[in-house]
């Protein structure tokens, strides 16, 4: 049972490394804030979750594996939240006017400054 779990863990870690690498490429290569955030958040969430889940068989004890699972849950809540806050702040400050991708368009009026 354990060798199979370790093999699955290694596969998960390798996939996680690939997704994290894709996130770095996305942050460096995508044209504007929103696509970069999209690439960064999605690929990095997936990558970090896969790495955490994949290292669970290597934790040594079931308590250690449970801790890794809790870290994964924490990451699943906090990372999208932070990206949402960044995206909203960019939208409110209309930062996207500075990027060539959106230069011909007018800023989207949708969200008021105050709730």
């Amino acid at each position: 049972m354990m060798p199979l779990l370790r093999f699955l863990g290694s596969v998960c870690i390798l996939a996680g490394v690939f997704f994290s690498f894709a996130a770095v490429v996305a942050i460096l290569r995508f044209p504007d804030v929103y696509t970069r955030l999209h690439g960064g958040t999605k690929a990095l969430s997936g990558g970090a979750l896969l790495i955490l889940l994949g290292s669970m068989p290597y934790a040594g004890s079931s308590l250690g594996a449970l801790k890794l699972l809790l870290i994964a849950v924490f990451f699943l809540i906090s990372n999208p939240m932070a990206s949402h806050a960044i995206a909203r702040a960019c939208h409110r400050r209309t930062l996207f006017k500075n990027f060539s991708h959106f230069s011909s368009e007018t800023p989207i009026e949708g969200e008021s400054m105050r709730e």
């Binding site: 809540i77 906090s78 939240m81 949402h84 806050a85 909203r88 105050r114 709730e115």
Partner: peptide
Amino acid sequence: QGLSFIVKRG
């Protein structure tokens, strides 16, 4: 003011 509803709930 604070941040948006999602961030506050989270």
